[in-house]
Design a protein around this nucleic acid. Structure first.
Length: 674
DNA sequence: TTGCCTCGAGATCA
DNA sequence: CTCGAGGCAA
């Protein structure tokens, strides 16, 4: 009969270790010791034992790299530490500015050490380990929330399932870039073509698509790999104090890091690295779109801190954008939610950096005349590090005699009303407000969008259909929709209709922030909507607020306050809001959280220096929760200044003005109700 | 802005 | 089975 089970367990464990080890040699270090056939033999031995003895199954077994049963949907993952993006540099001068800002902020003229690495053109992912085992993988998403792609990440050979050594922190989040090698990509497409399947347009999108497969068995067949470049959460252990040493530690634990990483001193050496990378770029087996430079010393990183969305201690120096020349076929005019008329270029399709460009926004007529565009012209287009293609110039020597001037239409292309462009303003607008069908469609689309009421399944095309068919005219009409007229629409079966109606019903329960944003008040975006919601707590007080009291809200100045007050002053807006509420749209009043603590309403606080226990954002949000306003500069109106380590000019100013200064500990005592 | 995946609808064929 | 819409990532 079969062997005693502890013997089997031992052998399974040994085989798994062996396979992990040889996987690592092969996929991460690129230095295999076994031939493919030898490896296969060991692998099949393990597979055999595991299937005979299912009681020893382990989701982190190397045999699970082939993927498992398909998911029905991805779940959301909140990042414990946000995944930020990087500030960009587009030339050596930007790099010099970067170093200057760092030195100023560190208050030191000492040379700065930078860790340099190529910027891989792939998809950012986060890997979370607990006790050395991979427990979760996620996409970046919007930086705060991403999608759980653990099953897919498990199939990537360069992602360690179990960490090597034993010095790693108990909880460790490692971040990096998933990508496809150019050779792997080419081979995959060759095979797809041979089998008569569709080929992928470029490695980047193929990578993004592969990671979003619900069936990880398909992901396993894609030639994905990854380079790791930073850490997020670290608990139950410590990491080295230099970025380069952290990367070395990651390598020891089994992660794949980029071999071209270097540490250099000073910005000139960074620029030299950039030039060298640009040289060898064509020889690399993966796409890069620039270099990333990080201050190597972690203590200095901490001192430098963060701007809203980017760290101050890192920058991405992008290679010059790829350029192409194509013909401007036409310029069309679109009408936005606020009536803004935007010219859009229709281009003869041209391949640029792996994608086919056929449209580009021209923003406004000033841009058109600045470029001197005429329909029929040959134009130079760029697709820079960002995604948006841009017309950067005209080649006048190639102009045909039959080229046609680009003129702002005399009337709105959607509704035929007049177009107005106030003196001194760049934007031309349709004059008829919500009686213009394009503006109505856009305002309904905005109302249903992700950050507003988030009505899933209600996109551009459906809104267009509903408005054109006369089924809806206002946002409120959405909540009066019924089955019968909907199923009569083309491409709307029973299933789609019930999904849509369910999504509309769900959207009624919302938040004040979303509701305010959904109203589409001029100048009120997501951030301002949140500030207004937090400040007023409910819609009533906001509707009645005076221009003066509106200005007490963060980031609301006289102009925005005026716009908001005028919106709420208009009779038709009041009717729309009342209708929505009558139709069942509701939210919990924002509890201007009554966390235990003193009432700091009206107090003005300034944070300066590096905080040790609290992060700056924590401190800020806790203070705001208690009603305080946190501002960036010290004045005589400042109630008190909180000074962390290495506080600079703000502390000096506070002392000069005789403003009270609190240490971080004193702030914590205060927040805890002291 | 494009390309990718997923879903549902509707066409086609059995 | 193919098509188009919606949502996501850069």
């Amino acid at each position: 009969m079969s062997k005693p089970s502890e013997k089997v367990a031992d052998e399974i464990a040994r085989l798994r270790d062996q396979i992990h080890y040889h996987n690592h040699l092969y996929h991460t270090l690129d230095q295999p010791e076994l031939s493919d056939a030898e490896f296969d033999a060991v692998f099949r031995r393990l597979q055999g034992l595991e299937s005979e003895h299912p009681q020893f199954a382990d989701e982190n077994s190397p045999t699970r790299r082939v993927g498992g049963a398909p998911l029905t949907a991805f779940t959301q993952v909140a990042h414990e530490r946000p995944m930020l993006s990087l500030d960009n540099a587009f030339g050596a001068e930007d790099m010099v500015d970067f170093e200057r800002r760092i030195k100023t902020r560190l208050d030191s003229q000492e040379p700065v050490s930078f860790a340099c690495e190529p910027k891989i053109d792939g998809v950012a992912i986060s890997l979370l380990y607990e006790g050395g085992r991979l427990v979760r993988a996620a996409t970046r998403g919007d930086g705060a929330t991403g999608e759980n792609i653990t099953e897919n990440a498990r199939t990537i050979s360069a992602v360690p399932l179990n960490l090597m050594g034993d010095e790693y922190p108990y909880r460790l989040e490692v971040r990096g870039e998933a990508y496809m090698s150019l050779s792997g990509f080419a081979e995959m497409n060759l095979q797809a073509e041979a089998e008569g399947e569709k080929v992928f347009a470029n490695p980047r999108n193929a990578t993004a698509g592969s990671l979003r497969q619900l069936d990880s068995r398909l992901t396993a067949k894609r030639p994905l790999t990854m380079f790791c470049y930073s850490v997020g959460v670290v608990e139950g252990g410590t990491l080295p104090e230099e970025h380069s040493a952290i990367l070395e530690a990651l390598r020891r634990w089994g992660f794949r890091t980029n071999p071209l990483t270097e540490v250099v001193v000073g910005v000139d050496a960074c620029n030299d690295y950039f030039a060298r990378l640009q040289e060898i770029r064509p020889t690399l087996d993966y796409e890069i779109d620039g270099c990333v430079f990080k201050v190597n010393n972690i203590a200095q990183q901490v001192t430098l801190g963060f701007l809203t969305r980017t760290p101050r201690w890192a920058i991405a120096h992008k290679f010059p954008a790829e350029e192409g020349v194509t013909r401007l076929l036409d310029v069309e005019f679109q009408v936005g939610r606020t009536g803004a008329i935007t010219p859009v270029a229709r281009l003869e399709p041209i391949k640029l950096a792996g994608v086919t460009i056929s449209n580009a926004t021209l923003h406004n007529m000033d841009e058109v005349s600045r470029l001197g565009l005429a329909v029929g012209d040959m134009v130079k287009i760029q697709r820079a590090g960002d995604v948006i293609p841009k017309i950067v110039g005209v080649l006048p020597e190639l102009r045909d005699t039959d080229s046609r001037e680009v003129a702002l239409p005399a009337v709105c292309p959607a509704c035929g009303s007049g177009i107005v462009q106030p003196e001194g303003e760049v934007i031309a607008r349709c004059s008829s407000g919500l009686s213009c069908s394009a503006q109505r469609k856009e305002s309904i689309r905005h109302f249903a969008s992700r950050l507003a009421l988030d009505i899933e399944g209600l996109g551009d095309k459906l809104v267009e259909q509903l408005v054109d068919e006369g089924l809806i005219e206002t946002t409120g009409d959405l909540f009066r929709l019924t089955d019968e007229p909907l199923v009569a629409l083309p491409r709307m079966g029973r299933k789609s209709v019930s999904n849509l109606l369910a999504a509309i019903e769900d959207s009624k329960q919302t938040t004040l922030t979303r509701f305010i944003y959904a109203l589409g008040i001029a100048e009120v975006g997501e951030a301002t909507a949140r500030n207004l919601a937090m400040h007023f707590g409910d819609l009533g007080p906001l509707r009645d607020a005076s221009v003066e009291s509106l200005q007490e809200v963060d980031d609301v100045g006289p102009i925005v306050a005026e716009k908001i007050a005028s919106f709420f002053g208009q009779k038709n807006n009041q009717i729309v809001m009342d209708q929505l509420i009558a139709l069942g749209v509701q939210w919990e009043p924002e509890i201007v959280e009554t966390v235990p603590g003193p009432d700091l309403t009206g107090e003005k606080v300034v944070l300066t220096g590096t905080l040790r226990t609290l992060t700056r954002n924590d401190a800020k949000s806790q203070l705001q929760t208690l009603g305080a306003k946190v501002s960036g500069s010290v004045s005589s109106k400042t109630s008190f200044v909180v000074a962390g380590d290495a506080a600079g000019s703000k502390l000096t100013k506070a002392q000069e003005l005789g403003v009270r200064v609190l240490s971080e500990q004193e702030l914590i005592d205060l927040l805890e109700g002291g």
